[in-house]
Amino acid sequence: MNAVVAGITYRAVLGRRRVLLLILLPLVLLGLAVLLRAVGSTDERAVVTLMQVYAIGTMLPLLGLIAGTGTIAPEIDDGTIMHLLSKPISRPVIAVTKFAVSASLLAVFAAVPTFVAGYLLLRGEAGIAAGFALGALIGGIAYSAVFLLLGVITRHAVTIGVVYAVVWESLVGGLVPGARNFSIQQWAQTFAGQLTSTDFFKPTVTMGFAVPAVLIVTIGAVVWAGQRLRVLSLTGDE
């Protein structure tokens, strides 16, 4: 971890139009929570739907995509990363720092709003607020690592990330049961399930699979990103 790298990265991600998307997505979650409260639909089933479909199913991967690729892809794209790479700092340290920045952003913009929305609707009932906040936190960490890696290895990180988030996790994960084992969303739900006690929510992936999967994916992706950064060649535009 390097404080200067982290400082520059925070300013790069938060200083541009990117931050609008980072704010908009959790705002919509809170808006929906307020709306559900207003129409008096504060039962566990409705809240679980909100959490599963919106918080974990839509907001988390999108925020992961924006924060994870946003910490490194634009810098590689326009060559500003040279400023960091031409210094006596090991490249894996730079990768780990960028990963930590992205994960912390997801904790703030995804996990906290998830907890607030859940708490707004149910207070502490059935552990739903805390459970899904934990799920969002863990999922955010895994997404940060994966999308950081994508940002390092390809110039089309966002497009590929979109295909992964939309096509793989929603379509394939929804239709092919076996594919659910290989979905960060599903792992996040498994962690959420550890704290919740409601009849309306049953994660499909076991903890015995999800814990090693999250660990392997996160550590593997960050280490790989660091190694790729060591051999990064920067050549021209486009």
């Binding site: 040279m82 400023h83 031409s86 006596p88 920067l234």
Partner: peptide, 20 residues
């Protein structure tokens, strides 16, 4: 990366962090 202790590099590409 230790060589950068003795090397200073001025890259050709104009891009620097504009917000600093």
């Amino acid at each position: 990366h230790q060589i950068y202790r003795s090397i200073g590099l001025v890259p050709e590409r104009e891009a620097v962090y504009g917000f600093l």
